[in-house]
Design a protein around this nucleic acid. Structure first.
Length: 571
DNA sequence: GACCAAGTCA
């Protein structure tokens, strides 16, 4: 009795672990006790490590292999974990075959997760083999398994097979119906998907849920079926699905595809927790509708139009739209891409981490790339830590004789963030030899019509004593809130090694904090990029001091509020 | 008693 109680406690302890470090600690503790070899406890451990949010395949694979026993559940968990990734799904299927080879009796769940792997790797014949085995093992009454199988056929565009499975099901729950709808939309029977929504509503088999709405809205968007969409919208309102973010996002997409941006905007405005998807959907809706409207009014888009559209795409990370517009501008509108268009595309691809594509694009250009273009790419190399490409880009800049101190600083940052200190020293030396001067960065803040300018470690301001005292206090406060100064990854334009000092923006912010009443937004402009450390500083400061902070640096605006920044991570 | 199915932008 006691043992069972203990087991339960340990399992709930494992479940409550949200951090990998805690879990690892618990793991090593248990490893020393006898509990670890309890298969039930080990299973809950394994699934914690193998499945999202942690999903560490190599670690979970190791403990799975090291564990002295095996059983179906352990295998199922591992197969499931592998089925979630495109690259790992093949190994998931191999694990399933291993399970069969070992003679461990597989169950319906094993088949389900193995089928999931086949869906991911798009292997029809492997999936059909499993289907045959399901038949043989008599698992045909398992609704979950059959739903998975249906989805498999649907994803591989074997609609008729999927319908057959559906027909043979003895009990169909809402998920099965939803899979059927998604199968219809995927396999070119979009109108039937809509009809199904009506059928479900009028019969009392299964009432549409939020996912049903999601799927049907998708169908409406492709069919341009505005009235249908509105019907679904009112159903959503009636059933209180409007607080589901993904439902709202789908509504936005549906309305903008149907040309009703106003309606889309209405939905967008009443949302309380908008995420990237909501914003991207809204932006792309606005952009493409404005674009369509322009054509309707017979105004031909010019090169400036595309600069606007492309830069909107690049700022909102709309990669596919950007690519689409870029392709159609010359093909359909006879607008030859100019250097700005290419610049937007390089920025777009670079931000998305598609650096090789960006490099290829520059190479393919008929016009000569300018320094700004290479610099954009260099910035992207810095973000995504592409050392080799970064070096090549600097070579191009040198060839153009356009290299600036800032470029070397960027290169320095690339090396230092990838931990290559030898190269850092080398570049520094070269900069010294070439006599490259770095201009000190400055930050400005406006107060009652007067602009105050600060440099790093500036002591020229009349209120410098207060400002530095304020900074000491801020640092204390922020440290309590968990701020740790980050000095390793970032180097500013100083040629000296990093000394613990205050960048200009910190001085400006401290001044703003002491010179303005609580609640005032602090606005600072900086001529270079804000560094990671100052960025963290701002994030935490905005929460601790409950102030909104707007920093405009060389690249963009950063809006800090309640411990967060508008640019999700640093850039 | 633990492990399981569908789904938002592109």
């Amino acid at each position: 009795m006691n043992a069972i109680h203990q087991e339960k406690t340990i399992i709930s302890l494992i479940k409550s672990c949200t951090r990998k470090s805690h879990l690892l600690q618990l793991h090593s503790q248990l490893l020393r006790s006898s509990h670890f070899y309890n298969p039930t406890i080990f299973l809950s451990f394994l699934s914690r490590f193998a499945l999202p949010p942690l999903r560490d395949l190599s670690y979970s694979g190791r403990i799975f292999n090291d564990f002295p026993e095996t059983n179906v559940s352990l295998y199922n968990t591992m197969i499931k974990a592998h089925s979630l990734g495109r690259d790992s799904a093949r190994n998931g299927f191999l694990l399933y075959q291993e399970l069969l080879r070992l003679g461990i009796s597989s169950n319906a769940l094993s088949a389900a997760v193995a089928v999931k792997c086949c869906t991911k790797i798009e292997s029809l014949c492997n999936g059909m083999q499993i289907h045959a085995k399901i038949w043989k093992d008599g698992h045909l009454s398992d609704g979950l398994l059959l739903t998975t199988l249906m989805d498999f056929y649907s994803c591989l565009e074997k609609g008729s097979e999927a319908y057959k499975v559906f027909d043979d099901m003895s009990h169909r729950d809402i998920v099965a119906w939803n899979v059927l709808i998604s199968c219809y939309t995927r396999n070119g029977r979009t109108r039937d998907a809509l009809a199904l929504f009506d059928m479900m509503r009028s019969s009392n088999v299964c009432q549409p849920d939020d996912v049903t709405c999601l799927l049907v809205l998708q169908a409406c968007a492709t069919l341009n079926a505005l009235e249908w969409g509105q019907k679904v919208h009112s159903y959503i309102v009636e059933h209180g699905f409007l607080n589901a973010r993904n439902v709202c996002n789908s509504l936005i997409v549906m309305y903008s595809r149907c040309g009703c941006v106003e309606k889309a905007y209405e939905v967008f405005k009443q949302m309380v927790d908008r995420d990237v998807v909501s914003w991207s959907a809204m932006i792309s809706g606005l952009a493409s509708n404005a674009f369509k409207e322009m054509q309707r009014e017979g105004v031909l888009p010019g090169d400036q139009t595309f600069t606007g559209v492309l830069s909107a795409c690049s700022h909102s990370g709309l990669i596919n739209e950007g690519r689409m517009f870029f392709k159609c501008m010359s093909r359909d509108f006879g607008v030859k891409p100019n250097i700005h268009h290419y610049g937007c595309m390089v920025d777009l691809l670079g931000r998305a981490g598609l650096l090789d594509d960006a490099y290829e694009l520059i190479r393919s250009m008929t016009i000569k790339p300018d320094a700004a273009m290479w610099r954009t790419l260099l910035g992207a190399c810095r973000i995504h830590r592409y050392v080799a490409l970064g070096e090549r880009v600097v070579e191009h800049l040198v060839k153009l004789k356009a290299q600036e101190a800032g470029d070397y600083v960027l290169l320095l940052n690339i090396y230092s963030s990838s931990g290559n200190s030898e190269k850092v020293i080398e570049v520094r030396k070269m900069m010294k030899e070439k006599g490259i001067q770095t201009t000190p960065a400055s930050s400005t803040i406006e107060l009652k019509g007067q602009v105050h300018e600060f440099y790093a470690d500036d002591i020229s301001h009349p209120r410098k004593k207060e400002i530095y005292e304020m900074l000491v206090e801020i640092n204390q406060q922020l440290r309590i809130a968990g701020y740790v100064a980050e000095i390793t990854s970032e180097l500013q334009s100083k040629s000296e090694p990093y000394v613990l000092s205050y960048h200009s923006e910190k001085l400006a912010i401290a001044f703003g904090l002491l010179a303005t009443p609580p609640g005032t937004t602090i606005r600072v402009a900086k001529d270079l990029r804000i560094c990671v450390d100052c960025h963290n500083f701002c994030k935490i400061l905005s929460a601790v001091y409950n102030r909104k902070l707007v920093i405009r640096d060389r690249n963009r605006f950063h809006h800090f509020r309640e411990g967060r920044c508008s640019c999700n991570d640093y850039w």
